[in-house]
Computed example of a mutant assay.
Amino acid sequence: MSLSTFIELVNKKGKDRVPFFFVVDFELQKPKVWDVDSLIDENILFNFEGFSNHQKKEAISVHAEKIYPAFETYEKAFNHVYQHLQAGNSFLVNLTAKTELITSASLPDIYHASSAKYKMFYKGEWVVFSPETFVRISGNTIETCPMKGTIDADLPGAAAKLLNDPKELAEHVTVVDLLRNDLSRVSNNVQVEKFRYIEDLRTNSKHLLQTSSKITGRLPVGYEANLGEIIMELLPAGSISGAPKPMTCQVIREAEGEKRGYYTGVAGYFDGLSLNSCVLIRYIEKAGDQFFYRSGGGITAQSHAQQEYQELIDKVYVPTIGVYQNS
C-alpha cells in the first residue's frame, strides 16, 4: 500500500468513524490498514492496554539463550554516529542492534507468554511487547508519552542516578522538545503536562526504570477526516529516531546498515471515537530459522560506547518470560 493510499483510506475511515487497525514501518514504505474484524484471518493478534482481538490463551514457559552483538561491532556503529554528533549534523541519534535468541519457542508462544502495555503478533514474522505510547487521541485531545532514559533498577540508588545523569537529562529534553514541536504541527495549545517521571518495568529476568514525559495538544473539530495526515506528520516517532529527523534518519541508515522495517515503526487502533497507538519496540523478529531481538538507545555527544552498549543489553528481555543468560 502506498503512503497516499494509506492516508486516503485512514482519512475516510476516520471521517466515517469506522474502526480500523494500522501499522507503519520505520522507513514509511509499508503502511497497512485493516478492518479490525479481519485481523484474525490476516494472522495478526494484538492487545493494547487490555483491548484485544482474541481470547486469552494459557501461556507456556519460554526460555532463550541470548547471543549479544560483539562490542567491537557496536562500537564501530557508535563511532560513526558520534562523528556526526560532533560535527553538529544531529543532536540525538537512536542507534539499535540485533541480539540473536536461541529458543525452542515459537513467536505465538512468546506473544501469549508476554505481558506489556502494548503487544502484537504479526503474520509469523515478528512479535512486539512495547511499553511506549506513540499517540492517544480522546475527544479533541492528543497526547504522546516519549520514553527516554533506562537503568537497571537493581543498581544502588538507581532512580536517583537516572534522574541526575546529565546525559540522560539532555537526551530526554531533546526528545520532549522534538515531540512538542511535532504535536504543534497538528494541534494547538501544546504543553508538557508531566516531565520526566519514572516508570517501573518488571520481568522475570529484568527490573528496569525508565523516564517518560506526557505532552498534550488540542486537535481541531473534525480532525478525524484528516487522521491519515496527522499520523504521517508525526512519523517517524521522535523517541526512536532523533533530532533533527531527516539528517538523523540518514545517519541511522549509514550506521545500522540495513532497514529496520516494522521495528521502531508504529501500530494503532481507532475505535471510531478515539485512537490508541504504540511505538514498536521490545521487538523479536524471525529470519529463516533464527530469532533476533532488536534493541538500542539514544546517543548524544555526552554518550560513552560502553554505557550505551550496556543499555542495549539491558533492554533485551521479554516480560514475564524466564530467559537464560548467555555464558
Rank of each mutant, 00 (worst) to 15 (best):
residue 107 L to P: 03
residue 95 L to V: 02
residue 176 V to I: 06
residue 269 Y to C: 10
residue 30 K to C: 10
residue 99 T to I: 00
residue 32 K to R: 15
residue 210 Q to A: 08
residue 55 Q to C: 05
residue 79 N to C: 13
residue 251 V to Y: 09
residue 317 Y to H: 12
residue 69 P to L: 03
residue 287 A to R: 11
residue 23 V to G: 10
residue 53 N to Q: 15
residue 140 N to H: 03
residue 304 H to C: 03
residue 222 G to V: 01
residue 304 H to R: 14
residue 309 Y to L: 00
residue 47 N to L: 09
residue 277 S to A: 09
residue 37 D to K: 09
residue 142 I to E: 01
residue 105 A to P: 15
residue 255 A to I: 10
residue 315 K to Q: 04
residue 1 M to Q: 08
residue 27 E to A: 07
residue 319 P to S: 14
residue 102 I to D: 09
residue 207 H to M: 13
residue 304 H to Q: 14
residue 59 A to Y: 05
residue 119 K to A: 04
residue 156 P to V: 09
residue 295 S to L: 01
residue 102 I to R: 15
residue 279 V to T: 02
residue 232 M to C: 13
residue 122 Y to H: 14
residue 154 D to E: 13
residue 175 V to L: 15
residue 223 Y to P: 07
residue 178 L to Q: 00
residue 40 I to G: 08
residue 257 G to W: 07
residue 299 I to H: 02
residue 1 M to L: 09
residue 88 G to R: 06
residue 213 S to T: 13
residue 280 L to H: 06
residue 148 K to D: 13
residue 274 S to G: 06
residue 62 V to T: 02
residue 82 Y to R: 08
residue 132 E to R: 04
residue 128 V to Q: 14
residue 90 S to M: 04
residue 113 A to Y: 02
residue 103 T to S: 15
residue 137 I to A: 01
residue 25 D to M: 12
residue 180 R to C: 12
residue 205 S to W: 00
residue 29 Q to K: 13
residue 272 G to I: 00
residue 146 P to H: 10
residue 173 V to E: 10
residue 97 A to W: 09
residue 319 P to N: 14
residue 46 F to A: 11
residue 45 L to I: 01
residue 117 K to S: 07
residue 266 V to R: 03
residue 207 H to V: 10
residue 159 A to T: 05
residue 276 N to A: 14
residue 306 Q to C: 10
residue 153 A to H: 11
residue 186 V to H: 01
residue 78 F to Y: 09
residue 199 E to C: 03
residue 38 S to F: 07
residue 255 A to D: 07
residue 10 V to D: 08
residue 44 I to R: 02
residue 17 R to W: 06
